[in-house]
Design a protein around this nucleic acid. Structure first.
Lengths: 377, 377
DNA sequence: CTGTTAGCGCGTTCAA
DNA sequence: TTGAACGCGCTAACAG
């Protein structure tokens, strides 16, 4: 009893204390109702008499009451938090994906806890686990779940997750993606249909188990096999940057290969390739055709506008959001959602000219230094 | 009593139940200690005997125990959640800012709740309030706090916030930014020093109270006043997109103005201007000099490489993170942190040629359709 | 329609 | 060094 009284006393003092926020008890006292009624008035208003509801609303207003979501989460065992791990946000593709995902989550009152992995699987797992410890009730990942420790953790804790940007016939659960291999295959086939036979691939780095990059290279291998084209030595890997694209194309040319067309694992690589061609006086698409991947905003504005594979990031973000919410609320969810990619043909693809043209030119239109970054001041 | 027993029974059954997670009680029972000791072993290990600690660790491992952060947050009244509202993530500048901010927060065990406002102040306020209701203990905003309702809300709830990407001499609290006006002024002065007198500004949209855009236009006005150049009719506004840049430049030219230089409120506008120049056969920098703003990765790779104002997004992200953490933990924080911008001079700025050259050319190197986006299939 | 009561899982007293 | 007990703020039972 003494305890109770102390509690009450402290409580009533607190009402005057502006720094710490008001609670349901404060509102209840001011509105002369019980805490349960306050709770009901806020969550299921229709079961509370209008007059009482208004009294409570007034008290809420007066006290500047904000429900404490930690308490609610504890009581209801649900945080409405979804963990999201993307490789990077510096790449517009993932930024758009997240924006779409976040908007979808918000519509159902969910919030996104976002971290980036920088394409590192270990980092992805670490972050994901931290997000779950922080209360995430579902996880959205880019690429399939590949870290054993994280997989075990998810299985043990029963936290649902969805994988995005991939498909995998061997695993049909909770995938929101598209067929990377097939998309590249279509790109190659477009080039083949134009008459190209010497096609090189500028790929992202596959050694870090980036399964999207791996799938794209596999698509290239399959396509070249079908059309009886060479493949292995015609593949160069580099990071998904402009500089990476330049380096990859240089590597191909340094091997003495003379491609008439390039398929790239990313628009960034394609931009780099375009730069390198310009620097070497190789005309695109006359001397070399180029196909990108992702269809970034900039792709349409390049010179010449880039032919590329459109990736449905926004659609995937929405679908992933709906899917993970369904899983979290134990509603029925489709096993997998597969989107189609679309080859957007602009101005970097054309028929190959003729064999002898594509050898490296001696005459350059400008000096290399002209294209390098430099800064003064 | 019956209630108690039922509770206990449920508890002991729960131990076998893999789907719902273990609690301190479960760990305590398995390790034959009290819940208090478990709590201590996890939070202040040094006060627990080694042997006991190991027993507890084993129990934690076996049960796959994850501390319930909702409960911890409720008990300690701190969520370790920071709300972040940026205009958009599609713009690399803010994506980089967030990545840096998030990394900094993570180092201190804080997490970011991220939403985007799409440059809409009302939306920003709505989102911010939702974030706080969800438990955010601090807020990071881009631009100053301009919505009265949000300002009142923050004041009432005592939630700290920091503003970024701006400075404001009239308000010295919790700002992490740089001087937008001065940066533009420096850009103009660089052009003036090269000999330019007819300088136009392509600005972002200022009607939505975008205070960064407004500050940049003000910088232009100040600079033109100092150097006795015309200003008002030499300003065109457009959204921060490539297409916006093209439209803005067209608007300037349609007014019959013949600028020898353009300062742009964003690299995107500058890219659009560059495109429009190409389409019209206007050579950059011979006929028109262009200065961008932001120094996106792509800026250095444009043709020609873009002279632009470097914005310290990564530094601001780090500083904003440290600042808001300090405020949340009631540690001392600097009132404001102001970074310097740097004018990066590349290849789009040069001395003006002469008056008669800059009139619009009749002969075009290529047809306009050549530069437009189109997609088939 | 409303009030009473109990407990979500945790960290923190206070005693031992 | 450890344990017992309490309550953070909220909502779900149950009773009226």
């Amino acid at each position: 009893m003494t305890e109770h009284q102390r509690g009450r006393k402290r409580r009533s003092i607190k009402t005057n204390n502006a720094s710490s926020s008001a609670t349901v008890s404060d509102v209840a006292r001011l509105a002369h109702v019980s805490t349960a009624t306050v709770s009901r008035a806020l969550n299921t208003p229709d079961v509370v008499r209008l007059e009482v509801r208004e009294r409570i609303a007034a008290a809420v207003e007066k006290l500047g009451y904000i429900p404490n979501d930690s308490a609610r989460a504890l009581r209801q065992n649900q945080t409405r938090l979804i963990g999201v791990v993307v490789p990077t946000l510096s790449y517009a593709l993932y930024a758009d994906f997240f924006a779409s995902l976040q908007g979808t989550l918000a519509q159902d009152g969910y919030f996104a806890l976002l971290t980036t992995s920088d394409y590192d699987l270990h980092s992805e797992a670490e972050h994901a686990i931290k997000l779950i410890r922080q209360g995430a009730q579902g996880l959205v990942l880019v690429g399939r779940l590949r870290e054993k420790r994280l997989a075990n953790f998810l299985a043990a804790s029963g936290i649902p997750h969805v994988s995005t940007y991939v498909t995998d016939p061997t695993d049909n659960e909770n995938i929101i993606g598209f067929d990377n291999a097939r998309a590249i295959r279509e790109a190659v086939e477009h080039l083949v249909s134009l008459g190209h036979r010497r096609i090189a691939m500028l790929s992202g780095v596959t050694t870090k188990q980036n399964d999207r990059a791996i799938a794209r290279v596999n698509g290239f291998r399959i396509a070249t096999q079908i059309h009886q084209l060479p493949s292995e030595s015609w593949i160069a890997e580099a990071p998904y940057t402009i500089e990476g694209g330049r380096l990859a194309l240089r590597a191909i040319l340094a091997r003495g290969l003379e491609p008439t067309a390039l398929v790239c694992g990313s628009d960034m690589l394609a931009i780099g390739a375009l730069q390198e061609c310009k620097a070497r006086g190789i005309h695109v698409p006359r001397d070399i055709s180029i196909v990108g991947f992702d269809d970034l905003e900039i792709a349409a504005h390049l010179d010449p506008p880039l032919s590329t594979v459109e990736v449905p990031s926004v659609e995937m973000g929405k679908a992933a959001g709906e899917h993970i919410i369904a899983l979290c609320s134990r509603a029925p969810a489709p096993e997998k959602t597969i989107f189609e990619t679309r080859l957007v043909i602009r101005k970097t693809t054309a028929k190959p000219r003729s064999r002898e043209i594509i050898t490296q030119r001696a005459s350059r239109r400008r000096t290399p230094s002209d294209l390098l970054v430099f800064s003064s001041s």
